[in-house]
Amino acid sequence: MRHVLFIYFVTFSFLFVSAQDFVSRFMASHHSDSKLTCITISPKMMNEILELNENVDTTILGMISNLKSMQMLSSNVAAVRYYNDALSLVNKSVGVYEPYFSINNTYENGQIMIRKRFGAIVELIMFSCKSRRFFVINFTGSMNIEFINRLSVLLHQKCS
């Protein structure tokens, strides 16, 4: 009987554990840090954004339709320390995040990472340390490679 209960508990244990996005996990260890500024856009607000009709770019709105939430973290001090903390958090989360792009040069260090679930990209993270400024952009939603390709040419389209 005990064995049956144990197997039952292990099988359904995932129901009791919800995932947290990268910024939430980062903030869990920095929750009392006043040097960090966190911006949160919830799924409810994302839906409200999609209902906007005026002063919106349809291309961007189309991209937002793939997104469920956004969290943005920034700090103008101790950028390198925060960047290293973010890196160590990624390294601790073995098998959760996959590196997608990275930037490493004299002026900037940055990582773009994704989290996949059942073949879809459910989280897109960028954290960077640039000009003494640390920032993290964290999107959750239902994304794919095509979404990232569209995102990569977004600036190009806006410039042109």
């Binding site: 409200e48 906007l52 770019d57 961007i60 490493n104 773009i112 977004l154």
Partner: peptide, 25 residues
């Protein structure tokens, strides 16, 4: 929502820029 839209779109632009930089690297 309009302020939120601006923040999300600026974040998307920043991400786009970083991807572009990364690709160019």
């Amino acid at each position: 929502p309009e302020v939120a839209y601006k923040k999300v779109s600026s974040a998307l632009m920043m991400l786009s820029e970083e991807i572009k930089k990364s690709k160019s690297q």
